[in-house]
């Protein structure tokens, strides 16, 4: 088929200031979620749900690296990500330049768009795709999970990938 695939290479910085690429996580499954730390509803709910799904995996969770990629690099520095994710310790935050983040978004066909935030006239919101992506040990796209799925279903599907 000629259509563009989902997934690909990226170069970003993690919330410990390490430069990372898609190759940095080879050998582990990667659970990837795109969002932004000013997000009031979608991200907190998704991160909580995905953390629960990983908890449900038990010891298998050690085979999965959970990454949170910002779509708002202007405000989400490594420090901001680290602080935000302290409530979701399974996740490592990734940021980068606007261009680097755009490359990652394009690779995963992620929608994110700057929009007015009625609750924050001085700031802005970033409506975004609320999917999570699972990459296999070779960094290839393996599955995606929509925001309608419950933690138990996500855990079951990850387990199938890991053990199947």
């Amino acid at each position: 088929m000629s259509a563009p695939p989902v997934g690909g290479s990226f170069t970003l910085v993690d919330h410990h200031h390490n430069r990372v690429t898609e190759a940095s996580y080879r050998g582990k499954y990667v659970l990837l979620f795109f969002g932004f730390t000013h997000c009031k509803q979608v991200c907190p709910a998704a991160l909580l749900k995905l953390s629960t799904a990983l908890d449900l995996l038990g010891p298998l969770a050690t085979e999965v690296r959970a990454l949170y990629v910002t779509v708002d690099p202007e405000r989400d520095s490594s420090e901001v990500l680290r602080g935000f994710l302290s409530e979701y310790p399974r996740f490592t935050g990734l940021t980068g330049s606007a261009e680097q983040v755009d490359v990652a978004k394009r690779a995963f066909r992620v929608f994110a768009r700057r929009a007015e935030d009625p609750e924050d006239p001085e700031g802005y919101a970033m409506p975004h795709t609320a999917f999570s992506y699972l990459l296999d040990r070779d960094g290839r796209f393996a599955a995606h999970f929509t925001d309608a799925l419950e933690a138990t279903e996500i855990a079951a599907r990850i387990r199938t990938q890991l053990t199947g």
Binding site: M1, P4, V6, V110, P127
Partner: peptide
């Protein structure tokens, strides 16, 4: 020559919808 089938075509449309925020 551009080869698809019913499922790869649907998959392509699906991801375009995702990319455009539906």
């Amino acid at each position: 020559r551009f080869s698809y089938d019913q499922d790869s075509l649907a998959e392509n449309l699906y991801w375009q919808l995702v990319e455009g925020g539906f």
